[in-house]
Design a protein around this nucleic acid. Sequence first.
DNA 1: GGTAAAATCGAAAACGTTTTCGGTAATAAT
DNA 2: ATTATTACCGAAAACGTTTTCGATTTTACC
Lengths: 340, 340
Amino acid sequence: MKEATLKEIALELGISIATVSKALKNYSDVSSKTKAAVLKVAERLNYKPNSFAVNLRTKESKTIGLIIPEIVHHFFSNIVNAIIEEAEKKGYLVIILQSNESEELEKKQIDLLLSKRVDGILMSLSNNTTNLDHLKKVIENNTPLVLFDKISKLIDCSKVIIDDRDAGYAATEHLIKCGCKKIAHIRGPLNPQNSIDRFLGYKKALEDYNMKFDRSIVFTCEKVNFDEGYNFAKKIYTEHKDVDGIFAITDLVGIGVVAYFNEVGVKIPDQIAIIGFSNWFMASVITPSLSTIDQPGFEMGKKALKLLLKEIKAHKKGKEFKFKTIVLPTKVIERKSTAF
Amino acid sequence: MKEATLKEIALELGISIATVSKALKNYSDVSSKTKAAVLKVAERLNYKPNSFAVNLRTKESKTIGLIIPEIVHHFFSNIVNAIIEEAEKKGYLVIILQSNESEELEKKQIDLLLSKRVDGILMSLSNNTTNLDHLKKVIENNTPLVLFDKISKLIDCSKVIIDDRDAGYAATEHLIKCGCKKIAHIRGPLNPQNSIDRFLGYKKALEDYNMKFDRSIVFTCEKVNFDEGYNFAKKIYTEHKDVDGIFAITDLVGIGVVAYFNEVGVKIPDQIAIIGFSNWFMASVITPSLSTIDQPGFEMGKKALKLLLKEIKAHKKGKEFKFKTIVLPTKVIERKSTAF
DNA sequence: GGTAAAATCGAAAACGTTTTCGGTAATAAT
DNA sequence: ATTATTACCGAAAACGTTTTCGATTTTACC
């Protein structure tokens, strides 16, 4: 049950390997007669080009690398979904690696992908990445790189993002328009750009509407999960009774908040309004349903992949490629947790 | 900025390519002096072996393929997480493809992976897969294959599963012990083995406890999602008022059920008890928290990968490999939705 | 029939490794 | 000093493909 090769086909037909290769790729300098003959034998022997040899010869693997913090998060698994699907359509396969929110691991994953010689890398930064040498290495290595969602402004490459500042502003503004007088923010970690930007949007909205910014009602998540939402809600409930609106960095955190208030019998949205971020499916089915900001993950993945593929193509032809930053629109999704 | 090769190192040191190669791989037939010299130059030139060439020469890519129905499901993203992590530890990368519950697509993904010449394939069958020729093709192709979770008994290969019949039995028995007198089952699609087995477990438990099996209160999901849970709950509420217990094929479905009864004000578990399946995180945080069957996804992924790697190793050495089926334990997680 | 153009083919190099096997040089044993 | 070991090295083949370029053959044209 040996694998068929060009050589075997050539041998069988008494022609050269070169001609067989060209016949299979439909080159114009081989007669239709030999093409037909080659095709027939190839079919019969169940010939499949040896991708290892093709890779070596063409110097490309039709494979891209994808590094995300954690796949077990709805937002990311959704993006991964989009990327895999779109890549496949374009004839690319994708190798997925996780940084687990560790800079160390992120470096290692990049090294792995570079040594595998993927045609390009798609990535979303870990929350704890501060040193960017590994990203620069990718660029120096001449491997096309596209950053999405959690990016760094300091790296010169293509990017696909949302305007987090804008979105944070919209979320806060929505709470204000619902009549909230004192709005707390459960923000993300200090380092990543998007949690900074959402916070900045929150702050700006307060300013624009002449509401006092109060540092003591801004809470910083470390893990950005349900428990943190729950616990900060408890803290708000016990220490800041006058807070009547909460903007949570994430739907999961927001769901934690909702769970706490439900537990202690605080009425949402009558006593306190809550808005999350991302538009995770679960936000729509909890009670009360959670208002949120729609963050188009699928679209983001698709766009990021398309950009990367364009860059790969240009790179292959040795053409100059101008980096692009795509900013995707977000919108407020109004649900029960912020109803008037 | 050309990539360094063995040739360049050899040229620079005035030795042969073979020696450089062997020095880098610490062969015993090269002196420690030359080893040191080679290492130094390799370091300086930032030499990285060309994986394309290595693949071609060694006939392996240190890459495995993974096919799952959909990555945007907690259970699967969790498994993927485990597989990626474990694979990386063992020096393997993983290419992920989705079948989107389509037999057609599943076939295509297999062809893709085979033509990429991955070292092995890990997969969980789509709900709609009935013809198994593509799986047989993998085996004929001599590519190691391990099936997990959604398997087929007709394919002779290693498998990692849970005992779904047992688990379905335990879930139903738990409801019975909570005092339920009439238990409905919202089952999965008709085709996949695991939803058949869970149903069989359900039926057996009823028999063992002398409860009438009633076909009219077994409902079959097509998509296995929140809405189906919600809608079947509505149907049960309106058409089968005497049902006082529901075993749902999945936590997501179970959460849909809970959502409906919450909405119409039916008390859980007083009026109706509900148990889900999988132990998804969200099941523990909804109100009331949802009892469930713990299905060890992470463990399953790890075990499946380890099995595959063993088979790959044996296969490489041309050794015989005896297929193994690992059955992972499950357990009932008792929460508020079935409290006495 | 002769020449020019077009069609068709193949030799060979190249991609960068790994590994076998034989050869030489250095050391040890007699 | 001779032989037997051991240590070290390199030539060369092989993995299977792609592509260039020159050679040959066929067709077209006058």
